[in-house]
Design a protein around this nucleic acid. Structure first.
Length: 831
RNA sequence: GGGGAAGUGGCGAAAUGGCAGACGCGCAUGCCUUAGGAGCAUGUGUCUUAAUCGACGUGCGGGUUCGAAUCCCGCCUUCCCCA
C-alpha cells in the first residue's frame, strides 16, 4: 500500500486532500461490524413486529459468484432490507444447494472428492456473499450435502413412503448418457437433458417415484397465491389436465385373456367416425395380437420405434408412420370391425397407449389415413358443409351426423350423451388424465442423499428405521459414474442386515434428485440447527409460508412445482398446516452479456475485480439501475460512470461543512426542498415495494441534484438540510448499504442505519403549489398554463380562453365540447 | 403448429387512457485543471429554422376515444414455454 498509491489517493492529494468517496476504505469495516454486532440476526419472534420471510433461491456451490448471481442476490437483498426498514422482523437466510451433478461433474473433472470440492467452493462463495453486503443471518446457513440436513430428507422420504406417496416401479425411464443417470420428465427439454444437452434415451429400469399426480387437481388451484401469471400458465400447461373417456373395443375373437382393447379419447363425440385403432409400439397387447404374416414387419417397426426419441415421435413436423398388425377390433357402438395398427406417434405412457383413429376429426389421424388409404368418415359436420371430401381434419365443434341416434345433436351435447351411453352399457368410463407423470426422483449417481431403503430376499423392500438415520454417504467410495450407482460397487455400503428379520440384505444404492432437497429447505431455515426433527413446529408457524420468494423463472415446472407438492403432502401428514410454500413469488429477469447468458462455464464475469475498482455499492446500484428487475438486462461497463457520479455526489452532499448554514432559511426555498424530499420518499417507497429499483434510483438521483441546487442558493437552514440528508440516506440504505452506513455515522448518527425505520411521507408536503395545466385543441397541445394547485374547473377554462395561443384556434369556431381533467388538462373540441 | 411476453432517441430506459423520451450512458460546447478515464455548467428525438413558431414521431396497417406508447383487431420481428 505504501508503494502503490491508488489513483484516488493521488486525486485526493492533488485536490487538496478533499474528502472523497473511496469505498475500499470502509466497506469491509462495516461488513465486519454488521456481523460482529449481529445486525441481521433474527429471532423467531419480536414483540410488536410482524415477521417477513424473504427467501431467495439458494445457489449451487459452483465455486464463484458471477455477476449474474449478483444481479439476483443484490435485488433480493435490497427488497429484504427494504422490508426490514419498514419495520418487519425479516428472515433473509442463505444456504447452498450442494448436492447434485454440477458439483459432482466438476469434482470428477478435477479429480477431487465432491465433498472437498463442494466445501471449498462454499467457503469462497460465503466470502463473496459478504463482499456484496448481503444482509444474511449466517447463523441459519444450511448446505444440503451435510448429513445433518439430508438425514431429514431421508426422514421425509420415509414419511411419504409410509403414506404411499413414494414407490418403486419398473418402467421406461429417461436415461441421460452424458450424466449417466435417469432424469425426471421435468428435466427433459426438447428431448434433451436439461443439464448437459445429451439426447435422452428410453431405458427400462427400476426407479423411485413420488406420487405428484395424486395432487394434480390441487396443484392446478393457484388463485390464492400471488405469483406471476406466466408461471401459473406454465404449471397449468405442464399438468395438462384433460377430460375424456376410456372406451373399450372388443377383441374377444382372438381368444386372449384380455377381451377388450381400451382407448382413451377426449373426443368421444367422434366415436362413430372410427376407421382404425392405433396402438403404441410398446403396448402390451401388440405381441399377442400380431398375426403371423405381419410378425416380421411389426418386429422391425417396434425395434425402430425403440431407437426413436419421444420428442421425434410426437413432433408435428415428422411424417406419421405405422404398420398394420393384421388384427381387428370391433367398435361396440356400431359393430364395425376396424384394423389395428401400431404407430410411434402414440405413446405408451399417455392415456392408455391406444387411440381410436378418427381421420376426419384429428390431424394426425387424417394424415395417417391418407397415407395408408383408410376410410375418412365425417361425423361432425362443419357449418354449411356440402358433403364433399375434407381437405384436412375438421377439429372444431359442429353437428353430429352418421352417428346413429345422436344425429342432429351438437358435438358438445354429443360428448355428454355418448359418454352416458358408454357408461350405462359398461363399454367404458369417463376419465380425467394428466400430461404430468409421477416425479421420478432416483438417480444413479454418488453425490446425493441415499434413499433409505433395504432390500431383503425374504421381507422385500424395507424402510430403514428412523433411528438408523442418516444413511450416510460413504466417504471413500469411488464416485465416478459407471451407469449404475457408484454406491452399488461399495460392499461396505451395500451389505447390511434386514431391519425386520435380521438376515443379510442389500441397501438401495440410488440417490435422490436434488430437487428433493430444495422442496423443503424453506422449512429447514426456520430451525436450521434442530437435531431431532426436520423443523420446529413453532418456528415454522412463525415464519411460513414464505412471504416473498425470489428467483428465476427457469424453475417453473421443476423446483416450484415439486415444492408445492411437498408442502401439500406434508400438510396431509399433519406436519404443517398450510398447503402452499411461497405466498408471493417474484421472478427476476436474466442478466446477459454479449447476447449470452452469464455462467461460470461459458461467459464468466467475475465480480471481485469490479468491486476492487468500483466498490460493492456501485455494482449493486448499477445492476439495479439497468432496467426493471423482472426484465433482466445486458451487462456492459459503459453505464457504471453514472452510478459512480451519483454516489460521489451523495458523498459530497453529506460531508459538506454545514457550520455556515443559518438557523432559519428562506421560507420558499425550504418548502421546495421539503417537497422534493417528500416526493422522493413516496416514489422510492412505492417503487421498492414493487421491485422497481431502477426508478427508485432515478428518484434519488433527482433528489441529490435538487439538494445541490438548493445548497447553491444558500437559503436552506441547517435543520432542514440535515433532515433532508437523513431522509436521502435512509432511502439509499437498502440499495447501497455500505455508503449509507458510513455517511450515517459521519453526519453524527449512531450505528446502525439498517436498524432504522424508513421515513414517512406527507402528501400535503409533497404537493406542488403551482401546477402545469395543458391546453389541447382537438387533442393537440397548444399551450401550457401555470396555475395554482387547487384551481377550479371554471378558473381553468377561463385561463385557457385567455391564452393568445389558444385564441388563434378558437376564434371563428364553434366549441362543441370541453373536457377537463382536474389539475392536468383542458381539451377544447372545436369545429 | 399452439400458448405467453415484448418491440419507444445513437444506447439502457421512463410514462399503463391525459405534456412521449424522466433518470442515466454517450455526444457537443464552455469552465476548472500541468494533466484527465476527475469535477462543474449548458445543450442533445427527427425535419425545418439564425432562434422561435411549426410539422412529424413509440415495429407496420386499421379501429375505439375529445384524447392512444398505453385499450381492441390484423400483420411483421424478437425472446420464453410447450408440441
Amino acid at each position: 500500500m505504501a508503494t502503490t498509491r491508488s489513483r484516488q489517493e493521488i486525486d485526493s492529494n492533488s485536490a487538496g486532500n478533499r474528502d472523497r468517496y473511496e469505498p475500499a476504505t470502509f466497506e469491509k469495516k462495516w461488513q465486519d461490524r454488521w456481523e460482529r454486532e449481529g445486525v441481521y440476526k433474527v429471532p423467531d419472534e419480536v414483540p410488536g413486529k410482524e415477521n417477513w420471510f424473504a427467501l431467495v433461491m439458494f445457489p449451487y456451490p459452483s465455486g464463484e459468484l458471477h455477476i449474474g448471481h449478483w444481479y439476483q442476490y443484490s435485488g433480493a437483498d435490497t427488497h429484504a432490507r427494504f422490508k426490514r426498514m419498514q419495520g418487519y422482523n425479516v428472515l433473509h437466510p442463505m444456504g447452498f444447494d450442494s448436492f447434485g451433478l454440477p458439483a459432482e461433474n466438476a469434482a470428477i473433472a478435477s479429480n477431487i472428492h465432491p465433498r472437498i470440492y463442494t466445501e471449498t467452493n462454499i467457503v469462497n462463495m460465503r466470502r463473496q456473499f459478504r463482499l456484496m453486503g448481503g444482509s444474511y443471518d449466517w447463523d441459519r446457513e444450511l448446505a444440503t450435502h451435510q448429513p445433518e440436513y439430508y438425514r431429514w430428507n431421508q426422514y421425509l422420504f420415509l414419511k411419504l413412503y409410509e403414506a404411499g406417496l413414494a414407490y418403486q416401479s419398473r418402467g421406461f425411464a429417461n436415461w441421460c448418457e452424458g450424466c449417466q443417470t435417469t432424469v425426471a420428465n421435468e428435466q427433459v427439454l426438447d428431448g434433451a437433458c436439461e443439464r448437459c444437452g445429451t439426447v435422452i434415451a428410453r431405458r427400462e429400469m427400476d426407479q423411485w417415484f413420488f406420487k405428484i399426480t395424486e395432487y394434480a387437481d390441487e396443484l392446478l388451484q393457484m388463485e390464492h397465491i400471488d405469483w406471476p401469471n406466466k408461471i401459473k400458465v406454465m404449471q397449468t400447461n405442464w399438468i395438462g389436465r384433460s377430460q375424456g373417456v376410456d372406451f373399450q373395443f372388443d377383441i374377444s375373437e382372438y381368444g386372449l385373456a384380455e377381451k377388450h382393447l381400451t382407448t382413451f379419447t377426449t373426443r368421444i363425440d367422434t366415436v362413430y367416425g372410427v376407421t382404425f385403432v392405433v396402438l403404441a409400439p410398446e403396448h402390451p397387447l401388440v405381441e399377442q395380437l400380431t398375426q403371423p404374416e405381419q410378425r416380421e414387419a411389426v418386429a422391425e417397426y417396434v425395434a425402430q420405434a425403440a431407437r426413436t426419441t419421444e420428442i421425434e415421435r410426437t413432433s408435428t413436423e415428422r411424417e406419421k408412420t405405422g404398420v398394420p398388425i393384421g388384427a381387428y377390433a370391433v367398435n361396440p357402438l356400431n359393430g364395425e370391425r376396424v384394423p389395428i395398427l401400431i404407430g410411434d406417434y402414440v405413446l405408451a405412457t399417455y392415456g392408455t397407449g391406444a387411440v381410436m383413429g378418427v381421420p376426419a376429426h384429428d390431424e394426425r389421424d387424417f394424415i395417417f389415413a391418407k397415407k395408408y388409404g383408410l376410410e375418412i368418415r365425417v361425423v361432425i359436420a362443419p357449418d354449411g358443409w356440402d358433403g364433399s371430401d375434407l381437405d384436412g381434419a375438421y377439429l372444431a365443434p359442429g353437428k353430429q351426423i352418421n352417428s346413429a341416434e345422436f344425429d342432429g345433436l351438437s358435438s358438445k351435447e354429443g360428448i355428454e350423451k355418448i359418454a352416458d351411453k358408454i357408461e350405462s352399457n359398461d363399454l367404458g368410463n369417463r376419465r380425467i388424465t394428466y400430461r404430468m407423470r409421477d416425479w421420478q426422483f432416483s438417480r444413479q449417481r454418488y453425490w446425493g442423499a441415499p434413499i433409505p431403503i433395504i432390500h431383503c430376499d425374504d421381507c422385500g423392500t424395507v424402510a430403514v428405521p428412523e433411528a438408523d438415520l442418516p444413511v450416510e454417504l460413504p466417504q471413500e467410495s469411488d464416485f465416478k459414474p459407471t451407469g449404475r450407482s457408484p454406491l452399488a460397487d461399495d460392499p461396505d455400503f451395500i451389505n447390511t442386515t434386514c431391519p425386520d428379520c435380521g438376515k443379510p440384505a442389500r441397501r438401495e444404492t440410488d440417490t435422490m434428485d436434488t430437487f428433493v432437497d430444495s422442496s423443503w429447505y424453506h422449512m429447514r431455515f426456520a430451525s436450521p440447527q434442530l437435531a431431532d426433527a426436520p423443523f420446529d413446529a413453532d418456528a415454522v408457524k412463525s415464519w411460513l409460508p414464505v412471504h416473498q420468494y425470489m428467483g428465476g423463472a427457469e424453475h417453473a415446472v421443476m423446483h416450484l412445482l415439486y415444492a408445492r407438492f411437498f408442502t401439500k403432502a406434508l400438510r396431509d401428514l399433519n406436519m404443517v398446516d398450510f398447503g402452499e410454500p411461497y405466498s408471493r413469488l417474484f421472478n427476476q429477469g436474466l442478466l446477459i452479456k454479449d447476447h449470452q447468458k452469464i455462467s461460470k462455464r461459458s461467459n464468466p464475469l467475475a465480480p471481485d475485480p469490479l468491486i476492487d475498482r468500483y466498490g460493492a455499492d456501485t455494482i449493486r446500484c448499477y445492476l439495479m439501475f439497468l432496467g426493471p428487475w423482472d426484465q433482466g438486462g445486458d451487462w456492459s461497463d459503459d453505464g457504471l460512470a453514472g452510478i459512480t457520479r451519483w454516489l460521489n455526489r451523495v458523498w459530497d452532499l453529506c460531508v459538506r461543512d454545514t457550520s455556515g448554514l443559518s438557523s432559519s432559511g428562506d421560507e420558499a426555498a425550504e418548502k421546495e426542498l421539503v417537497r422534493a424530499a417528500h416526493k422522493t420518499t413516496r416514489r422510492a417507497v412505492q417503487d421498492l415495494e414493487r421491485f422497481k429499483f431502477n426508478t427508485t434510483i432515478s428518484a434519488l438521483m433527482e433528489l441529490s441534484t435538487e439538494m445541490n441546487r438548493q445548497w447553491e442558493s444558500g437559503s436552506i437552514s441547517a435543520s432542514t438540510w440535515s433532515a433532508t440528508i437523513d431522509r436521502m440516506l435512509l432511502l439509499t440504505a437498502p440499495l447501497a448499504p455500505h455508503i449509507a452506513e458510513e455517511l450515517w455515522e459521519r453526519v453524527g448518527h449512531s450505528f446502525s442505519i439498517h436498524s432504522q425505520s424508513l421515513p414517512d411521507w406527507d402528501d400535503d408536503l409533497a404537493a406542488d403549489e403551482v401546477i402545469t395545466v395543458v391546453v389541447q385543441i382537438n387533442g393537440k397541445v397548444r399551450d401550457r398554463l401555470q396555475l395554482v394547485a387547487n384551481v377550479s374547473e371554471a378558473e381553468a377554462f377561463e385561463a385557457a380562453f385567455a391564452s393568445d395561443k389558444v385564441k388563434v384556434y378558437t376564434d371563428d369556431t364553434e366549441i362543441v365540447r370541453r373536457i377537463y381533467v382536474p389539475g392536468k388538462l383542458v381539451n377544447l373540441v372545436v369545429k
